[in-house]
């Protein structure tokens, strides 16, 4: 089990390390002079000020030196300052990251709560009308753009019915974005759970258990559900990354004050320190969640736990 986990942790560290390199290179991949572009929108910047910024960002040094400087600041928890406002990037991100994580977790909860039982039911009634209907709904759900689902929910619940606020950051404001992100992912969970459960139901040991006359409900609970849920757990790790990505769009629809909305604003304003910080934060979160899920998987799967 420790070998399994240590490989995963090593892989995660490698991913974050490569991200730091890519993030340093990012600013040089910008066509033209990044400092000029960053300040193109604010008038009255003198050439001296631009040179000052170039120096403070270290952009006048060779790239390896810049990377060393970046890493030196990073280990001290310094991600630089924002171009607009000059606040520390880390503070700006830490202020908003909890909002994004709350949104992603709430959405994950909704997705699993709806998707897994539907998938299980469809697998249980495989080939029946229930199964076909549920799977048609699931494929329609996968095809529906989540940003459109967001607008539709906004229209019905906030505009037409007036039950929920259109935007803001209270608990009631969480309902619509979480529902948007959760529902569109529920379909993916339903499809995955169904195929995973069907795989397990076709296994010899399940057939044996049924053949020797164990009650179907007992076989499902003891043998099918446990084994069939394992791939779903693995999927949660990957899906969390999708949730974080989806949050970028959903936060913008509902003006939810998370890092996704911040990142899109930063792209428009060409605020590269924020973009760098966002990419780094995003990959750290995704890696941490992936490792946690892998640990959970290792504990749940006896084949790995006992190895």
């Amino acid at each position: 089990m420790w070998r399994f986990l240590s490989t995963r942790i090593l892989m995660g560290v490698l991913t974050i390390w490569i991200t730091t390199i890519l993030v340093t290179l990012l600013i040089h991949a910008v066509p033209g002079d990044p400092v000029q572009i960053m300040y193109a929108q604010s008038q009255g910047t003198t050439p001296e000020q631009i040179e000052e910024v170039r120096r403070s960002l270290g952009l006048d040094r060779p790239i390896p030196v810049q990377y060393a400087m970046f890493m030196e600041r990073l280990v001290q928890g310094d991600l630089g300052n924002t171009i607009r406002g000059g606040q520390p990037v880390l503070d700006v991100i830490m202020q908003r990251l909890p909002n994004t994580l709350v949104l992603a977790c709430a959405a994950m909860f909704i997705a699993v709560l709806i998707g897994v039982p539907i998938g299980f039911l469809a697998a249980y009634r495989k080939g029946s009308l229930t199964d076909i209907t549920l799977m048609i709904i699931a494929i329609a759900g996968i095809s529906m753009p989540h940003f459109w689902l967001g607008l539709v929910l906004l229209f019905f619940f906030a505009v037409e019915l007036g039950w929920l606020p259109v935007s803001g950051n209270g608990w009631l404001n969480l309902v619509l974005p979480a529902l948007t992100l959760g529902l569109s992912n529920a379909a993916i969970f339903a499809r995955l759970t169904r195929s995973s459960m069907i795989d397990v139901m076709n296994q010899d040991y399940v057939q044996t258990a049924l053949a020797k006359g164990l009650p179907r409900a007992l076989v499902l609970r003891r043998h099918v559900l446990r084994a069939g849920l394992l791939p779903v757990v693995t999927m949660m790790g990957l899906q969390f990354a999708f949730m974080m990505g989806g949050a970028i769009v959903v936060e913008n629809i509902f003006s939810w004050n998370g890092v996704g909305r911040m990142a899109v604003e930063a792209i428009f304003q060409r605020d590269y320190p924020i973009i760098q910080g966002f990419i780094l934060t995003f990959s750290v979160v995704v890696v941490l969640v992936a490792i946690t899920i892998d640990a959970l998987y290792a504990v749940l799967d006896p084949r790995i736990r006992r190895s």
Binding site: M11, I18, G245, A266, S283, A290
Partner: peptide
Amino acid sequence: RSTDVLFSFTETLIALSFVAVLGP
């Protein structure tokens, strides 16, 4: 291994980073 690393970045982040660099 590099594919694995890129894969864990997720498609959204890669796409967003590219647009951030190249411009909308």
